[in-house]
């Protein structure tokens, strides 16, 4: 029996230029944070706490990107059965939960100052919380179910249901409550603030992309390790057979 060594998946999922992407992320984020604190003017009523917004809003946007990645890859997995699609779905869900948590942590700090309370039944806050719960449940099922095809299938189903749910949650909570700031849409924002925000959005977006590609790469390597173990055990069994 021949022991075939699978090609390492480092060249896939971004390959060499993940490094460049990481550097671009570091530069953009540093510039963004600098602009958020020293370039953008201090907001009159809320003061320094308002600067959370430069991190909070981009995080919320990439949260959606993570969950959408998960759902799209889940559909691909159910249709094609490709392990790679499953790895992408998992990476999307994990990053979605990561940034969702960042949103949930930064939100209350801002709310404490702006609304005088850490937590309110505010719609977008609730939406974020529910999304977070849905995909934490997804990750729990993944963890409990192990690596079987069945778990991958179940999780693909959950990923699709989770994203299908988001518009409904959104409509429902908006109907229920509503006082989230809508500064951007009303045009009530200084140009310097807009510049800082754009750079931060780019930085957080690049960070998301870098982490996603790294996580996909790690996931593919995990799959490789499992394949190796499998081949080793097959090899060992063959040798044992020959000996006896």
């Amino acid at each position: 029996m021949k022991l075939t060594i699978p090609t390492l998946h480092t060249s896939e999922a971004g390959g060499e230029w993940v490094t460049w992407l990481a550097i671009a992320t570091a530069v953009t984020l540093t510039a963004g944070v600098g602009m958020a604190f020293f370039y953008a003017p201090e907001e009159a009523t809320m003061g320094v706490v308002q600067r959370i917004f430069y991190f909070h809003v981009p995080s919320a946007i990439v949260t959606y990107a993570g969950f959408l990645t998960c759902a799209t890859a889940s559909v691909a997995y159910l249709v094609t059965g490709s392990r790679k699609a499953d790895v992408v779905a998992r990476a999307g869900a994990e990053l979605g939960v990561l940034f969702c948590t960042a949103v949930l942590l930064s939100g209350p700090i801002w709310a404490r100052k702006a609304w005088g309370t850490w937590w309110t039944g505010e719609p977008r806050l609730l939406l974020t919380l529910v999304m977070c719960l849905i995909f934490v449940a997804y990750l729990v099922v993944r963890q409990m179910g192990g690596r079987s095809e069945m778990t991958r299938r179940i999780c693909a189903v959950l990923g699709i249901l989770g994203v299908a749910d988001i518009p409904l949650v959104r409509v429902a909570v908006q109907r229920w409550r509503g006082n989230h700031p809508r500064v951007l849409r009303e045009g009530g924002i200084a140009p310097e603030m807009a510049h800082a925000f754009t750079v931060m959005l780019l930085g957080v977006g690049l960070m998301f992309l870098t982490l996603l590609l790294l996580r996909i790469r790690a996931g593919l390597l995990e799959e490789d390790v499992e394949t190796w173990h499998l081949q080793l055990s097959a090899r060992r069994a063959t040798l044992d057979d020959r000996r006896s």
């Binding site: 690596r147 079987s148 499992e226 173990h229 499998l230 055990s233 097959a234 069994a237």
Partner: peptide
């Protein structure tokens, strides 16, 4: 047919 890190059938 593999289950986890070993083969049930090879």
């Amino acid at each position: 047919r593999a289950f986890g890190r070993s083969h049930a059938l090879f």
